[in-house]
């Protein structure tokens, strides 16, 4: 059996924010190891700190203390720009509210990360991905001309264009009706499987979480592992 490679590692991660008179702890002693190609769900109620954790793991934010490694790089030691460059190379995102740039067409939104990373065949690859998400006919449409489901499909295509090693998805189907939401989830898992991407999914939807190999429960800043879906190596648990 092939030895899994740890892809994301968090050690003793703490996140606090300074309020006017006191200090609020959002994340407490987080330990986590995620292997390459794994699908992981972080579940929790609103305000439990799951999005904060996603931000830290993706290098969008920094922990107050502790160490975080992404694709072998120590995020806690990198500057903001170095983290941005790492994201450009290795990370993809799908957000709850799609977050497409309103002044760019569907195709241009998809190719934007590739262009930022300086990839040469962005347009060809963008058209391919739009075809894969079933939106070839919408390539020149602007976000406000598309439905919510279509916008999220564009966002998924955008997330995969740089062939990222890790994909972070923040409540990808929360803003959609259940039928459309399911289609989007299918698409996400399908592309993820095709590309062998590590998927970290933040959701409060337990059904969606069930589709992941590993699930963690976030509660009041603490992270706890739920039982794995199948027989899995437990080393991923921090």
């Amino acid at each position: 059996m092939k030895t899994p490679i740890p892809h994301i590692v968090a050690k003793d991660v703490v996140k606090t924010v300074q309020l006017t008179e006191s200090e609020l702890t959002i994340l407490q002693d987080i330990h986590l190891t995620i292997n390459q190609g794994a699908t992981v769900a972080i579940v929790g109620a609103s305000g439990s700190g799951k999005s904060t954790l996603l931000g830290i793991l993706a290098g969008l934010d920094q922990a107050s203390s502790g160490e975080v490694y992404l694709a072998g790089q120590p995020l806690h030691q990198l500057s903001e720009d170095q983290r941005a460059e790492l994201r450009a190379r290795s990370v993809g995102f799908v957000f709850q509210s799609f977050l497409l740039l309103p002044s760019l067409t569907a195709l241009e939104n998809v190719t934007l990360p590739a262009e930022l990373a300086g990839m040469p065949d962005a347009r060809v690859r963008g058209l391919e991905l739009l075809a894969q998400v079933g939106l070839s006919h919408r390539a020149d449409f602007f976000p406000n001309q598309m439905s919510g489901g279509e916008q999220q499909r564009v966002a998924i295509a955008r997330a995969f264009i740089t062939k990222p090693a890790v994909l972070f998805a923040d409540e990808p189907s929360a803003n959609l009706d259940s039928a459309t939401g399911e289609k989007i989830e299918d698409l996400l898992f399908e592309l993820n499987e095709q590309q062998g991407t590590t998927l970290i999914l933040v959701t409060h939807n337990h059904e969606l979480a069930q589709r992941c190999q590993y699930r963690y429960l976030m509660h009041a800043g603490h992270l706890a592992a739920e039982q794995p879906k199948a027989t899995e190596d437990k080393r991923h648990v921090g």
Partner: peptide, 16 residues
């Protein structure tokens, strides 16, 4: 502001 945040999340640096 939102668009810039998205671009930066997708890998754009502040100077870019």
């Amino acid at each position: 502001a939102r668009s810039v945040a998205v671009m930066k999340a997708l890998g754009a640096t502040t100077s870019l």
